Simulated assay, not measured.
Amino acid sequence: MRAELAEFLRDRRSRVGPADVGLEARGGRRTPGLRREEVARLAGISVDYYIRMEQGRGPRPSRQVLNALAAALRLSDDERNYLFRLVGEAPSVVSSREVPASVLRLLERFDDVPALVLDVKYDILAWNRMAVGLMGDFGSRSEKERNMLWWMFCHRPSVLETEHGRRFAKSCVASVRAAGRYPGDPGVRALVDELGERNPAFAEMWAAHEVQVQRSTPKRGVHPVFGELELDCEVLLIPELDQRLMFFTAPEGSPTGKALQELRNWDRQT
């Protein structure tokens, strides 16, 4: 496997130019792509260590080194997984903020229910018109404010005062734990630190170490136009991107079901 790893690294290094990684091309380059020392610097490892890998020598690289090399060489998700398999490691799941066009089309097909696409730490990446009607205009919020945990624990902590609100919040926190990215993901770490400092309720839930992937949970809230709503929150996982599609439904003919129908009509008129 060392020979295959060495060949793969050399090939992918030749495909990445200095401009691709924000480097200025200086001096004559006899071969295309990055220099070995440039890859090493981008990955945060020693030049000697990287040279030994390209020569099929040296120790087996750690997951941290593999992730750093994948970022430095601008590998796709499939290429990253292949890199991990070359050294006998399980593929590294990568959380992507880019929502595939097929998922966006599916999102819009839910024209009668509010639907969102979220990443592993509950950043809201995409939404449909019904979600805007239910929860407000996400496009007018900053990226930091487009996070469901931040919204519940910092912007609207009053939702935690009800049993349903607290239960929903707990399920979200447990789902972040279940993603297995703590403490290695700096984005999760930063979010956990901030929420823990700003809201003791979050610190308490996080310290409980509950682990459960969120799939279905009830959610109750009050809409400024349609009043109290009792919704079923369903979550579909998109495992290859570490994303999830969340949508809110209610039984047809129920008070909330009728409110969603009114919301749909109202949204089309605004």
Rank of each mutant, 00 (worst) to 15 (best):
V213R: 12
E262A: 15
A178I: 08
A207R: 15
P157H: 08
V211H: 09
L260C: 05
V213E: 09
E262D: 14
T256I: 02
G227E: 00
P255N: 01
P183N: 09
E240D: 04
R167G: 15
F247C: 06
E197M: 00
G196I: 05
K258T: 08
V159E: 01
G180N: 11
R181N: 10
F247H: 12
R244M: 13
F226A: 02
G184C: 11
R264D: 05
Q261W: 06
A169F: 09
R215W: 03
L229K: 00
H164N: 12
R166G: 09
G180L: 06
L191N: 04
A203I: 05
Y182Q: 09
R167V: 07
T162W: 02
P186K: 05
A207M: 02
P251Y: 09
G184W: 10
F248L: 14
V176E: 11
P251Q: 11
E210V: 07
A208S: 13
D232T: 13
T217F: 04
T249M: 04
G257A: 04
L245R: 09
H223E: 00
E194N: 07
L245K: 12
P200K: 06
Q261R: 13
E161P: 11
Q214A: 09
P255R: 02
M246I: 10
F226L: 14
L229V: 00
D185S: 15
T217Y: 07
F248I: 06
T162H: 03
E252M: 12
W206C: 02
R244Q: 15
V225H: 12
E230Y: 03
Q214S: 06
S158Q: 15
A190S: 01
